[in-house]
Amino acid sequence: MALKGNLRDYTVTHLFRLINLAQKTGTLIVDGPNEKVLVSFREGKLAYAQAGQEDNSLVTILYQAKKLTAPQYRALKERAGNMSDKELGLLLVNANYINQQDILVSLQNHFVAIVNRLFTWVEGFFRFESDLLPPDDKITVRVSLENIIIEGARQLRELEQLQDEIPNLDIALKFADRPGANIRNFNLSVEEWQVVRYINPKNTIRQIARATKMSDLQIRKIVYALLQAGLVELVRAEGAPRPAPPPQVASRIPVTQPNPEEQKSLINRLINRIRSL
């Protein structure tokens, strides 16, 4: 039976559990709102993962994992351009640049990070292709799924908590205008700066996430941290369309805004009335 559908109905956790139990071999393709992720399995174990068009070459992964220095990275990029990952890995090990264990661990971490990102997706079409396997020249790993599922569930819980804190991503941010909230006095991470650049009542959090290519969880974490630090406040997005009034009691009662002159006397009338209740 074809394994395909929408993550709304069948979550990544469910899928991984199934792949684990059925010891499946093949590739799971997930088309999310912002990117497409491919995750390959061999006999129910994680073998390989690729996110969107991200550079997935061994050299880049090793460099990101700080196993190669910048000059080494540049030299290898220039000179080993058409070498396959397998050949290059062998070369690096033989040249004593790096050992095999480092290569495998770096790849594992890289693949697991992609997969973890996937766990926070609540939306996206997926399909499982049994006859699609990672390209031959790529180095694959064997990571059992149990821990990945546990970690994924933990992340999902974290996301749910953050969803309580920041329920609506279609709201904008503005800098807090209290004294001492100068952004320059704070030690912000690179990701935080990326978000800070876009802070403006015109940009919703969702738009910022899109512009910075962050997942919902990532953007929520950063916005939460900035809110906690008192640097930003939530504001209604400028120019956001007002939602249409739904057909219920709220809209059937005409609510009038009193003009400023009458307001005070109106409030005083309310006060007197409530006192006398």
Binding site: P167, P243, Q257
Partner: peptide, 30 residues
Amino acid sequence: ITVDEDLVLYLFGTPGQKRFDFMWEILSEG
């Protein structure tokens, strides 16, 4: 709560759950 013949106060309770926060925006208007 009726204040007098030309003023009425309505008290609205919001739905409790977070995922209905679209209602809050509508309720909060005015």
